[in-house]
């Protein structure tokens, strides 16, 4: 079977998806820099785990890990090397492409055993298929490309001891600030996302969006107009320059549906829109839409949900 390398950065839904996709193409060899990532790899069916220990790698941005990944790729000559399409995954892939002089495809939404990848371009308006013509299939995989399926395995573990070279100590991570996520599910991982836009009108009124999210067990998102106006913190922004989400249900309230917003939510399974403007572009992609005032419509939804409990 083909040897598929997968970089497993963290224990999340996205990493599990990439492992699942890799498994559909061949035998997965996962590269893990910590115990949690290694555990995720065996939960999702890796045949082999490269368990890397590199003293100090976590203190520096991108470079130390890029060097390790390039070394493993040189040694194993894989059929494919998959990374999640996160900032880090893309940065590592960029380094690999240059270091190995190998083609690169980013944000693939599907990939077959022949190396033919699917990509969404122009904010999803066009779907292309592409392949790499120089080197192995090096690709970053977009969140939501596949459904993660666990397949517990007992992988062969190979320990990799790496030294962090002076030249990889250029950009120091002096501090990592994690802003508390609260009780709701993480935006990128949530099965339900309820987003508010400029139409919500104020920070106080975002409480209504939060209540709807809580009733549906979902995360709260926001459009850029809402984050720019300070109605909701920026880290909850959905879209091209915010988080890309792909939940089972996406509710857009008081959001017009600008292309940059759609780029971050259009692969949602079901889309619901509430907007008082019948011509808002968001309705063209909605599975269910209500033309109306969100302050009338959403409280009624809460009432009904209460009754059905």
């Amino acid at each position: 079977m083909a040897d598929i390398l997968v970089y497993v950065p963290e224990t999340g839904k996205h990493a599990a998806e990439v492992l699942t996709l890799g498994r559909s193409l061949g035998d997965v060899s996962a590269i893990a820099f910590d115990a949690q990532s290694a555990a995720l790899a065996s939960e999702y069916g890796a045949a082999k785990v490269y368990r890397v220990s590199a003293e100090g790698a976590d203190d520096y941005f991108v470079d130390p890990k890029a060097t390790v990944l390039a070394d493993v790729a040189r040694k194993t000559e894989p059929a494919a090397f998959l990374l999640p399409s996160t900032d880090e995954g893309k940065a590592l892939a960029a380094r690999l492409a240059v270091d190995l002089d190998n083609g690169l495809l980013t944000d693939v939404t599907g990939l077959d055993a022949e190396g033919v990848a699917e990509q969404d371009i122009f904010a999803g308006a066009t779907i292309t298929t592409s392949k790499i013509t120089k080197g192995f299939t090096l690709a970053t995989v977009k969140a939501g490309a596949t459904e993660a399926e666990a397949a517990p395995s007992e992988p062969v573990v190979e320990d990799v001891e790496a030294e962090v070279a002076e030249s990889d100590r250029r950009v120091r991570i002096a501090e990592s600030v994690v802003e508390p996520a609260g009780d709701r599910p993480g935006l990128a991982e949530a099965d339900v996302v309820v987003s508010g836009g400029r139409g919500v009108g104020s920070a106080d009124d975002f409480a209504l969006i939060e209540r709807v999210a809580d009733v549906l067990g979902g995360a709260v998102g926001a459009s850029r107009a809402a984050t720019d106006a300070g109605y909701y913190p920026h880290k909850f922004q959905v879209g091209q320059t915010g988080t890309t989400v792909s939940p089972q249900l996406y509710v857009a309230a008081g959001i017009s549906g600008a292309i940059q917003h759609r780029a971050g939510m259009q692969t949602s399974k079901l889309i619901v829109a509430v907007n008082k403007d019948a011509d808002a572009p968001i309705f063209s992609m909605a599975d269910f839409g209500v033309v109306g005032d969100l302050f009338e419509v959403l409280p009624q939804v809460l009432e009904e949900a209460e009754k059905r409990k």
Binding site: V274, V290, D293, E296, V297
Partner: peptide
């Protein structure tokens, strides 16, 4: 797509 005429929220629910 439904237009809210007092029942929009209920239809959505």
């Amino acid at each position: 797509i439904v237009t809210d005429e007092g029942e929009g929220g209920r239809k959505l629910a």
